[in-house]
């Protein structure tokens, strides 16, 4: 098992393997998002109170879930990079940051667009919205810190420490709507009870969520490959690969 992991973490194996995974993850993500979007935006029934406006849930909620998920992956990979000094973990961590930041931004924007007609305001400083905004700043901070240090390995370590410290924000975001009074509603799906959404509306949501996850897999691997090539540009396997054309 350890030997397999070591082999996987070697840049050359990872480069070859990820090249095979990317098309599969990318195409499945595209298909799932197309099916989920059609099902959610066209087929699913309108909400009894919000009418068609509720359909923004099919972008907002998967994006918000991914903003948390990507952060945990980033911090986890950062910790592995710090402890075992595995180059590949550092690369996965830093490649996740811009993707996670985009998901966070998407969740904030779609939430704001929905908030205006439904709540009557674009933005309020309640616990959920504020903590999600802090998450965006954490992502941007990780990216800025990484970019500010010349040596990539030192930069990865600094960025990983910031990412790990920021992990405390994740449970705060998730439980903010339960711990405090907020304008944002409580959890619909991610709770121990039965989801408080009709099944014909829930299925497209789960399909979209899976599609977003595979999209992340495809894009993080693409970014990681580029980062890997840049860091390893002087190593033998890269030189050989370039010469072989």
């Amino acid at each position: 098992m350890m030997r397999f992991l070591h082999k996987l973490a070697s840049p050359k194996t990872f480069y070859a393997l990820s090249g095979r995974i990317i098309p599969w993850a990318g195409v499945s993500a595209l298909l799932l998002i197309l099916v989920g979007a059609y099902w959610g935006l066209v087929e699913a029934p309108a909400d009894y109170q919000q009418g068609d406006s509720f359909r923004i849930i099919y972008v907002h909620v998967p994006a918000a879930w991914m903003s948390l998920f990507v952060y945990v992956v980033m911090a986890g990979a950062g910790a592995i990079g710090l402890i075992w000094r595995i180059k590949l973990a550092e690369i996965i961590a830093i490649s996740s940051a811009p993707i996670g930041a985009s998901f966070t931004f998407l969740a904030l924007v779609t939430g704001s667009l929905w908030g205006k007609p439904m709540w009557g305001t674009w933005w309020v400083w309640d616990a959920r919205l504020t903590s999600e905004l802090i998450l965006l700043f954490l992502y941007l901070g990780v990216m800025a810190l990484y970019g500010a240090v010349e040596d990539k390995r030192t930069a990865s370590r600094a960025a990983a420490i910031l990412a790990i410290v920021g992990v405390v924000n994740i449970p705060i975001i998730h439980y903010s709507v339960e711990w405090w009074n907020t304008l944002h509603q409580g959890p619909t799906v991610t709770k121990l009870d039965k989801p408080s959404i009709a099944p014909e509306m829930l299925w497209p949501l789960l399909i979209m969520a899976l599609g977003f996850k595979l999209y992340y897999v495809a894009t993080v691997l693409m970014r990681a490959r580029v980062e890997l090539l840049e860091r390893e540009r002087n190593s033998r396997w890269v030189q050989e690969m370039v010469e072989a054309g």
């Binding site: 029934p45 309108a46 909400d47 009894y48 109170q49 919000q50 509720f54 849930i57 439904m118 709540w119 009557g120 305001t121 309020v124 304008l183 509603q185 409580g186 959890p187 619909t188 408080s196 959404i197 009709a198 014909e200 509306m201």
Partner: peptide, 18 residues
Amino acid sequence: DEVLAKHDENYMPPEVAD
């Protein structure tokens, strides 16, 4: 001077609500 609607976490089609 400001009134905001708080939406709850329930989503259902109109027929189910009825």
